[in-house]
Design a protein around this nucleic acid. Structure first.
Lengths: 333, 333
DNA sequence: CCCCTTTAGTAGAACGTTTTACTTCCGGCC
DNA sequence: GGCCGGAAGTAAAACGTTCTACTAAAGGGG
């Protein structure tokens, strides 16, 4: 409970608090001899700078916020890894918020971030409500959208083309000869789910099928467990020839449930996931999926955010859109 | 960039700043009429409390730190989910630090947490150096160890018995008739890896085998990719009858590499992982594993930490040790 | 009717930094 | 020798909140 402050260090080194602050923040401005004396005092007393005092006076912190939809999803974990790497390279700390798909929880998390006066926020929004993000901006907090297109031009965003992804996925299923298709998706409040569905419909239209025939099974969460339940419903309602899942966790759940029910994959049903998480390749029947540059998504978004924070005058807002890549495996052989 | 402060709110509501602070922190102490007036002013002006100022004055924040070894590992993700749930129930924010197995990185993360004056820290330490954690305690930051036994009596810790787990796992492999056993492990600086190895040796001793015959393959990271490499080495060096992996990610990598090389599992080699992550049940040949109460680990650790923070006088330090549970699946059939 | 207690609210110091404006010293230049 | 300018350091104000000590008014009891 020592709580040694900059004043104690100053007294111990025989200088003023201002000089200690200079040693901490612009060592070049301090004569080498003095600097050494101060540094010795810092080590001797075990001084740790009080970040809050510093934030208060300086008006900003070296902290950013990361708000994701589901930290249990390897997709977001990899994004987070990219974020963390860049942030820590540049000396920023990351506060993680998990919205678990709930708008309320996301709202609470954003409030916490605002109270912490984070420098900026990386967010994969749970819903479509730009107003909440604009409120952050009004407080001087930069926002970069991750895995989501920009709401407005003066904003950075890093996204992957989900319509194209959905189209490519379903085109692949159609190419395997399937004609009746089910789409197992998370909440349709989530943009990704909606756009992948639109892509799926476009692919059906392209081969002359009626997009209205796409059988949509919506789940509350995008987990393997939810996928299992959805598969049970599909089986009960009569199996389609192909199943397209909005992410790999759902797909792995569907796969597990189908196999357990004696349905053969890919002979009876062809199956596609989305995200190409590590485990997709390792599953019972290896899972076809759409690969996204996940880690890069996190890295680039963070680089954009920190550039916006550290070089506001030269910073140019960017909208980056990656293209997903088809990874065919055994479930669509 | 409005930056409306408590003073602005006070002026707008015709009260003193102190009263606004009371509305924020002990609404009961303020007359209902005044409270409403203040609340209206807060909403009207879009006031957001400056957490740093509050932390500075109050001497502590409503923030805890969580430092894990690898956020990419579903084991830690689930722990983190438990932590997050409890923390957000009690109005605490969580700063996440990923040490990625590096002591340096962990050190940096702890420094960030110390500077933020977090109320407490949950940590799965990367190495065995209690001194660093003691330094945090000297700064008035409570520390609870997660998935690690206590360093000292006046400290909370929540752990799982890794020696027992290693013993049970290898006993199971031995019961399947295997006599030559390989242990694929992460860095032996990590306690869990060492203890599971000790358990493995104990199991060998128990059936009259020489523990020195345990073939140990050490990898730098505990990922599927590392597991694949380790498996390649095993194949090159002559296959054992059984492989025990220090976690499921390694095991899934080993499994993938073995199958690709034409080795049959479990006919040629029986295989066990550790952690029982969700994907263990979904793999090509479903993976036998040791289940740990992961989510509970996070929940309970956080409850202990916050109890220590919020009720320092009545708090009783606890050392909790869970027992892991064998989950046999196809890789040991 | 006075004193005591409770309730509602205020004024102002304090938290630990950063930063601005200022002082002091020294060397060099005309 | 006087003046200027830079280097090195200092003193003190400020950041936005919380908290302590205080005042004022309103009941309540004798």
């Amino acid at each position: 409970m020592a709580m040694v402050s900059i004043k104690d260090v100053a007294a111990h080194a025989g200088v003023s608090p201002g000089t200690v602050s200079n040693v901490l923040n612009r060592p070049g401005k301090v004569a080498p001899a003095t600097r050494e004396r101060v540094e010795a005092a810092i080590n001797e007393l075990g001084f740790v700078r009080h970040g809050s005092a510093s934030t208060l006076r300086a008006g900003h912190s070296r902290t950013i916020g990361l708000s994701v939809i589901d930290i249990g999803n390897p997709f977001f974990t990899e994004v987070a890894a990219g974020v963390e790497d860049v942030a820590s390279e540049l000396g920023y700390a990351v506060i993680l918020g998990n919205s678990a798909g709930s708008l309320d929880k996301e709202e609470r998390n954003l409030r916490v971030l605002a109270e912490h006066r984070v420098r900026g926020v990386l967010i994969t929004p749970s819903g479509e409500d730009p107003a909440r993000l604009d409120r952050l901006r009004e407080h001087g907090i930069s926002v970069v959208l991750v895995d989501h297109p920009a709401h407005r031009p003066d904003q950075c965003a890093v996204a992957v083309d989900d319509v194209a992804g959905g189209r490519a996925a379903v085109a692949h299923l159609l190419a395997k000869g399937a004609r009746s298709i089910a789409y197992v998706t998370g909440p349709l409040t989530i943009r990704q789910c909606v756009e992948r569905r639109e892509g799926a419909k476009a692919a059906m239209r392209a081969v002359g099928l009626d997009p209205a025939d796409l059988r949509v099974a919506e789940t509350a969460t995008m987990t393997a467990r939810a996928g299992e339940k959805a598969a049970a419903d599909l089986i009960a309602g009569g199996l389609p020839e192909a199943v397209f899942c909005a992410n790999d966790l759902l797909a792995l759940g569907v796969l597990r449930a189908l196999l357990r029910a004696g349905v053969r994959v890919p002979e009876d049903v062809v199956l596609m996931g989305y995200d190409d998480i590590d485990f997709a390749a390792a599953s019972t029947v290896s899972l076809s999926s759409m690969r996204q540059p996940t880690y890069q998504l996190g890295r680039i978004a963070t680089e954009l955010l920190l550039d916006e924070c550290d070089n506001p005058e030269t910073h140019a807002h960017q909208h980056i859109m990656f293209q997903p890549e088809l990874v065919p495996r055994e479930t669509t052989q």
